[in-house]
Amino acid sequence: AEKTGIVNVSSSLNVREGASTSSKVIGSLSGNTKVTIVGEEGAFYKIEYKGSHSYVAKEYIKDIKDE
Rank of each mutant, 00 (worst) to 15 (best):
A19L: 04
E40W: 06
Y49D: 02
S22W: 07
G31A: 15
K50I: 06
N32E: 08
E48A: 10
L29P: 01
I37G: 00
V9N: 07
S28K: 14
K62Q: 10
Y55G: 00
Y45H: 02
V35W: 02
L13Q: 03
T36V: 14
G31P: 15
E2G: 15
K24Y: 05
S10K: 12
V56N: 00
S12W: 13
E17R: 07
E17T: 07
S22K: 11
K3G: 05
D66A: 11
N14T: 12
Y49M: 02
G39F: 03
V7Y: 03
N32K: 08
G5L: 05
I26V: 12
V38L: 12
S30W: 11
S54I: 05
S22R: 10
K58I: 05
Y55C: 01
D66V: 14
I26K: 04
H53D: 05
D63T: 14
A19N: 04
K50G: 09
S52A: 11
E40R: 04
I6P: 02
K3T: 07
G18D: 08
E2Q: 15
V25S: 05
E17D: 13
I64Y: 09
V38M: 07
V35N: 00
K65E: 11
A43N: 12
G27N: 02
N8C: 15
S22C: 13
E48N: 10
S30E: 13
K24W: 04
A43G: 11
K62C: 11
D66I: 14
S23L: 03
E17C: 09
K46H: 04
Y60W: 09
A19E: 02
G5T: 03
N14S: 14
S52T: 13
L29R: 01
V56Q: 00
S22N: 11
Y49H: 04
G42C: 05
Y45N: 00
E59H: 09
G42P: 02
T36I: 14
G42E: 05
T36P: 02
K62R: 12
V56D: 00
N32D: 08
G31S: 14
E40V: 07
T4L: 09
A1C: 15
G39N: 04
A57I: 08
S10Q: 12
T33G: 04
D63G: 08
G5N: 03
K3N: 05
S54Y: 15
Y45M: 02
K3D: 03
G31K: 14
E59M: 12
Y60H: 10
G27W: 03
I61E: 01
E41V: 11
S11R: 11
S23A: 13
N14L: 15
A19I: 05
A19F: 05
A1P: 13
I26P: 01
S12E: 10
I64E: 07
K62S: 14
V15D: 01
K50M: 14
A19G: 05
L29H: 01
I47S: 00
V38N: 03
K58Q: 05
R16D: 01
A1R: 13
E41P: 01
V15G: 01
L13S: 04
K46E: 06
N32Y: 11
N14W: 12
N32F: 11
I64F: 09
Y55V: 00
A19Q: 03
K3V: 08
S30V: 12
Y60P: 02
S28T: 14
T21F: 15
E40T: 07
K24L: 08
E2C: 15
E17K: 07
E67A: 13
I64Q: 06
G18W: 11
K58P: 00
I47F: 02
S22V: 09
E41R: 06
K50S: 07
A57V: 07
S10T: 12
K58G: 02
K62T: 14
K65C: 11
S12N: 10
E67G: 13
Y55L: 01
S20Y: 08
V35R: 00
S23N: 04
S28W: 14
V25H: 03
V38A: 04
V15I: 07
S23T: 06
V35Y: 03
F44T: 02
V56H: 00
K65D: 11
N8H: 11
S11C: 15
E48L: 15
Y45I: 03
S20V: 04
S28A: 11
G5D: 02
I37V: 05
E59R: 12
A57E: 15
A43H: 08
I6H: 06
I47T: 01
N8W: 12
E17W: 06
E2R: 15
I61T: 01
S28I: 12
V56C: 04
G51F: 06
I6M: 08
G18K: 13
I6L: 08
A43R: 08
K34H: 08
E41F: 09
E17F: 07
I61L: 06
S11M: 10
K34R: 13
A57N: 08
V35T: 01
K50H: 09
S23I: 02
A57M: 12
A57K: 10
V38I: 13
G31Y: 13
E17P: 02
V25E: 03
T4P: 05
S11G: 15
E67K: 13
A1V: 14
K58V: 04
D63I: 15
I47D: 00
L29V: 08
T36Y: 14
E40M: 07
N8M: 13
A57T: 05
S54G: 15
A19M: 04
S11F: 10
L13R: 02
S23G: 05
Y45W: 12
V35M: 02
E48Y: 12
S20R: 05
N8P: 04
K46P: 00
A57W: 08
V25L: 06
G42Q: 04
K46D: 01
S23W: 03
G31D: 11
G5I: 05
S22Q: 11
E40K: 04
S54E: 03
K3L: 10
D63L: 15
N8A: 14
V15L: 06
L29T: 02
K65Y: 11
I26T: 05
L13I: 15
T33C: 09
I6K: 06
E41Y: 09
S22T: 13
I61A: 01
G42L: 05
E67Q: 13
S10M: 12
G27E: 02
L29F: 04
K34Q: 09
A43L: 11
F44K: 01
E41T: 08
G51C: 07
G51E: 06
Y55N: 00
I37N: 00
Y45Q: 01
G18R: 12
S10I: 12
I26C: 07
L29W: 02
V15K: 01
I26Q: 04
N8D: 10
S30I: 12
F44Q: 01
D63A: 11
Y60I: 03
I61F: 05
Y45A: 01
S52G: 15
G5W: 07
S11Y: 10
I26F: 03
G39M: 03
I64R: 05
G42A: 05
K46S: 04
E2N: 15
L29S: 01
E59V: 11
E17G: 06
F44A: 02
K34F: 09
T21H: 15
G27L: 02
D66S: 12
I47H: 01
D66N: 12
S52Y: 10
K24Q: 08
V35H: 01
S20C: 08
V25K: 05
T33E: 10
V7A: 05
